[in-house]
């Protein structure tokens, strides 16, 4: 298998050699998305498994972030967006007329490219959503805040200043705070939109560690433009180009033995 230089390089990179065959939880069928008249996603069909990390890769503007935002309907916030096809999560079409978007977003959490903590204290950042969803007891809140911060590997760093502003943290800490905030309400699925793109290598490494750690409990879909990152953290990889899904397979397969020339060119860094 490892006779080409490309494959050898990828071999070193890919962490898990066996991709877990868990249940498929997200079914995307022939999904197309239009911004006004422009078609940003073209007939995407994709199945994403539970409790694994799936990476979306591709050059800028290929639609990977757009697709990610389809999964918790964040695209609803943009004017003039139209979506064809279906996206089923847990057997329900999330674009069905009966769907409660709020309930959907509770179950499909999201971490954004630019860290966006609320201008509140660290504690309040996490307690915000908990309170919205009906948790009022102080002891419950305290416990959940601590658990979430521990999950996001931030507890040790901030436990002494829980009530100081979340904006006072460093970039990497802010992003982990956002992850803690997202996992606090225990979503089933966690969407991450280039969570480490604005961070330095050390902070990036921490986030990646965190992702590998979190996949025990969550289904994670991560968008990244960093191929090494995709190779390091993900079990499955989808490669997009110009709004189309070019290739979707186990990360190992995509990086070592891609079936499309385009994919190979991209993962070896010939373009992108």
């Amino acid at each position: 298998m490892s006779d080409t230089p490309t494959a050898r390089m990828a071999d070193d990179l890919v962490s898990s050699s066996v991709a877990p065959q868990t249940q498929e939880i997200i079914h995307i069928n022939d999904l197309s998305l239009y911004y006004g008249a422009a078609r940003a996603l073209v007939d995407i069909s994709l199945k994403i498994r539970e409790n694994v990390v799936t990476a979306f890769i591709g050059p800028s503007g290929c639609g990977k972030s757009t697709l990610l935002r389809c999964l918790n309907r964040m695209n609803d916030l943009i004017d003039n967006v139209r979506i064809d096809g279906s996206c089923e999560i847990g057997g329900h079409n999330i674009y069905g007329s009966e769907v409660d978007v709020i309930e959907l977003r509770k179950r499909v959490g999201m971490v954004f490219q630019k860290s966006n903590p609320f201008p509140k204290s660290i504690y309040e950042n996490i307690a915000f959503a908990l309170r919205l969803h009906g948790m009022t007891k102080k002891s419950d809140l305290d416990a959940t805040v601590e658990r979430s911060l521990r999950q996001a590997a931030l507890w040790e760093e901030v436990k002494d200043r829980l009530h100081s502003s979340g904006l006072g943290l460093s970039g990497g800490q802010q992003q982990r705070l956002c992850i803690a905030r997202a996992v606090a309400i225990q979503p089933e699925i966690l969407l991450m939109d280039e969570p480490a793109s604005a961070l330095d290598p050390l902070a990036t490494a921490k986030i990646e560690e965190l992702v590998l750690d979190l996949k025990k409990d969550y289904t994670i879909v991560i968008v990244t433009h960093n191929m090494q990152q995709a190779a390091r953290v993900s079990d499955y990889t989808a490669f997009f180009y110009l709004g189309k899904l070019v290739e979707f397979n186990t990360t190992r397969k995509v990086f070592t033995n891609p079936s499309h020339k385009q994919t190979e060119d991209y993962v070896t860094g010939r373009f992108g």
Partner: peptide, 13 residues
């Protein structure tokens, strides 16, 4: 910043 609204909505608010 628009990010604040997105963050809140993504948390199911």
């Amino acid at each position: 910043p628009h990010g604040l609204r997105e963050a809140s909505l993504a948390l199911g608010a």
